[in-house]
């Protein structure tokens, strides 16, 4: 692969290597927490935070870590930042922390984060890793926002908790239940694929 420019390193997370729509990574939290926009945003922000700081640490100490224990080391570093994010949410945003429930601690096993450490941060310098982590994190957050906006508007008639539709609108309950997550994700993935094909 040819050397990528810094801007490429950033934008690949948004489109060509988008973690949700192209790499299909981290789908469990994606499906589970996108029933409201605020939850999607909080999950995206928490994941980006963990991804960014894990990438900084891993890319700085990559030369010290023996190959045989690299995964274990990555996981310990990731788990540390996840716990920080979890405590921070519980202390300062108790409502969001409650709504996300077990999905914050479960960021530890989000494949996007471990995947980026293994595929990128452990092979690239700190600055590039930061750019990569930001691109992937923001790509993930935007994808969650798209998914949760569709689900919240159709399933609850609100956006960020603000009522959008009048009394005439009967919310599609299924959209905020698990099947709605699968339907929406499937359709969006199809649209993404179609747009990508058209672009080429």
């Amino acid at each position: 692969m040819a050397e990528k420019t810094i801007s490429n390193e950033f934008t690949k997370g948004l489109w060509s290597e988008n973690p949700i729509f192209r790499q299909l990574l981290g789908l469990c939290p994606t499906l589970a927490v996108t029933n409201a926009v605020v939850n999607g945003l909080a999950m995206g922000a928490a994941t980006t935070f963990v991804l960014l700081f894990s990438s900084i640490v891993i890319s700085s100490i990559k030369k010290l870590i023996p190959n045989q224990v690299r995964i274990a080391s990555f996981i310990v570093v990731i788990a540390t930042f996840v716990t920080v994010a979890d405590r921070f949410l519980a202390a300062f945003f108790p409502d969001i922390s409650k709504a996300l429930g077990p999905y914050v601690p479960l960021i530890v096993v989000n494949c996007i984060i471990l995947g980026r450490q293994e595929a990128f941060s452990s092979k690239n310098p700190v600055f590039r890793s930061i750019i990569d982590a930001l691109g992937m994190g923001i790509g993930f957050t935007i994808s969650l926002l798209i998914l949760s906006s569709i689900r919240e508007i159709l399933g609850n008639g609100t956006f960020f908790g603000i009522p959008l539709t009048g009394a005439w609108f009967k919310p599609w309950l299924i959209m905020i239940l698990p099947p709605g997550a699968f339907f929406t994700l499937g359709l969006l993935m199809g649209i993404f694929k179609y747009l990508d094909k058209k672009r080429k």
Partner: peptide
Amino acid sequence: TRMIIVLTSIGLISGAFLAGVGTLTKNRI
């Protein structure tokens, strides 16, 4: 030896860091 040293150090540093974060947020929670 290197594997043990690296993993132990990472664990210790993480643990110390988390203990700090835990103390800072405990009261607020």
